[in-house]
Simulated scan of single mutants.
Amino acid sequence: MQVVNGSKVMLMASQGLHQGDGPITKNSSVSAASTRKASNAKEAQTQKLDTNISKIRPERWKATGIIALSDSSLKAVPEEVWGCGSSIRVLDVSNNCIEAIPQEVAALKSLQKLILTANDIADGNISWEGLTCVQTLVTLPSSLGSMTHLRELCIANNRLENLPVEIGLLKHLEILIANNNRITSLPSSIGGCESLNEVDLSSNLLAELPEAFGNLRHLKALSVRNNGLTSLPSAFFMKCSQLITLDLHGTEITNDVLRQVDGWEEFDERRRKKHQKQLDFRVGSSGVFDEGADDDYRRL
């Protein structure tokens, strides 16, 4: 009976060792080493894959000329972007958390379209010197006057507080989109943008427009809704004789005030003709004529 019991005890001990309750056996050590080896191999494979991707992605960018990195949770433009140099025509890094555009942007000499909408770019965090090296830019959230080929400036949905004085040197600028910023004033030099035909400055902190705004003789559409404006530049309607669309909703300027401004009748006739044409062709019109500003009773 003792031997039998001893055998049972030894059997239980053996089972315990097999289940890992006792000392590590030789087989267990081999198994652990195999696991580590497999893990290291997987890690090495992952690193190799990441390396290949980091090589393939710039090659694809260079081949297409397009870098599309919108909605990528970026806090900065990846360094590999600048390495693509003059091969890049379009860079889209919109809807990220990017805070600055560094000097390295100068490497993208053939850039034609730069989209930085909806980032955290603040004043002073854009390398103007770098951007001046981009001579063929046509769409850009911000720029300097030496960008003589610039046609469209898009700086919407950022935290900019002003526009550079050099903007007045952009003689060929046709579209300025700067809504949803913190712009408190505009430089009088903006009057030098003689080709501007569309301007959107809505949802900013503007208290007035400079008198030089009247120099924009080709201006056809102006939106300054949701600002602190109380008046328009003198002779604005007289000078901006091509203006058709004006949005002053959410400002201190009412329709009654507008009707007292010289040149109102001519402007009103132009926009009514446009509205009627839209109705005739059923293009972009709800059928309700928008007066362009709020009525006094709506503000009460």
Rank of each mutant, 00 (worst) to 15 (best):
T245Q: 04
I253T: 05
L258Q: 00
T251L: 10
H249F: 02
R259F: 08
L248W: 01
Q276V: 09
T251I: 11
Q242C: 10
E265V: 15
I244Q: 08
I244A: 09
D256L: 05
M238D: 06
Q242M: 11
H249D: 09
S241C: 05
N255V: 12
F267G: 04
D280M: 15
D268T: 02
R271M: 13
V257R: 01
E252F: 04
L246P: 03
Q278N: 12
Q278I: 10
G250E: 03
D268A: 14
D262M: 07
R259K: 10
E269A: 14
K274W: 10
S241T: 03
T254F: 02
M238K: 05
T245E: 10
R271C: 15
L248T: 02
L279P: 09
G263D: 13
R259T: 07
V257D: 11
G263S: 12
E266N: 15
D262K: 13
D280V: 09
S241H: 04
E266Y: 06
N255Q: 08
K239Y: 00
Q278D: 05
E265W: 10
D268Q: 15
V261R: 09
L279C: 15
D262W: 01
T251P: 07
T251E: 07
Q278V: 01
L258D: 01
V261L: 13
D247F: 05
I244W: 00
K273R: 15
K277H: 15
Q276N: 07
K274N: 15
W264Y: 10
H249G: 03
Q278Y: 04
C240H: 00
I244V: 13
I253D: 00
Q276Y: 13
V261S: 09
W264G: 05
E252H: 05
F267K: 11
E252Y: 04
T245W: 04
Q278K: 06
R259D: 00
S241I: 02
D256H: 07
H249C: 04
Q260S: 12
V257L: 05
F267Y: 15
G250V: 01
M238G: 03
H275T: 13
G263Y: 04
G250N: 12
K239W: 08
E265C: 11
R270G: 15
Q278M: 10
M238V: 14
N255R: 07
K277G: 10
L258M: 06
I253C: 00
Q276F: 11
W264C: 06
D268R: 12
I253S: 00
